[in-house]
Amino acid sequence: MFEVRGLKYKYPNAQDYAVDGIDFEIRQGEIFGFLGPSGAGKSTTQKILIKLLKDYQGEILYRGKKLTEYSDEFYQDIGVSFEMPISFSKLTAMENLEFFRRLYKETVDVEPLLRRVGLWEDRHKKTGEYSKGMKIRLNFVRALLNNPKMLFLDEPTNGIDPVNGKIMKDMIREFRAQGGTVFLTSHIMSDVDELCDRVAFIVNGKIREVDSPRNLKLKYGKRVVRVEYRENGNVVSKEFTMEEIKTPAFFELLKTKDIETLHSGETTLEDIFIKVTGVALHG
């Protein structure tokens, strides 16, 4: 879908590049994630890809054609969820959606979407009276309004409770299952781990690593099996590497001891992020 080469961007009046020479591609039908700490340049990259920031250096191809050559019809194809609420506060959710719905050629029925994210009951409430989480959920519905082929989701679960977060993640996966492509940014490790086919680690406007979460774990992670068992009234914990679990010692332990828990210990994506970039995702 997207090919990005040598992308650089500096805000007017800014000293440093917010995006500092990055290359990546987003493949058709995948969920591609940008994982990075606050200020890394995630939102800036998204704003460039959706043609809101224009004076960038480098090349961006969308479906093989330069992004700059697309007219505003480009927006028929894409859906955008911003990191901040974007609705008219004195209009109800329905009035907001209705206004935007009429600006597109093709649109979807909003009722199933609003029901799914739990806003149907409050659809006639002014969005100014919505909570932060409700506004972000409405953003998500707004993004899906024009039946887009590609979704841009900037921190889609930020400020969302776990139940609704799970619903939204399910919806994102369903969108991909129907052939949609997703660009997603986050500083929340689990979002990226659960959703993304591939993830880019971004710090200070630079990409440090791009791969699938699974491959990253294989490459940087340490995989062990941790066994906890009871011995003489004490809980004892023992770790075995993937090689060691094939040895008799491991089976002997399982057979003879009072096993309490058995875990496969994977290095988390967050640990790997720190290992690769030397920067923590939070704080």
Binding site: D72, E73, Y75, V80, F100, K105
Partner: peptide, 9 residues
């Protein structure tokens, strides 16, 4: 922002 990402020039 929301208006800018619609197909409206």
């Amino acid at each position: 922002n929301s208006i800018l990402v619609t197909p409206v020039p």
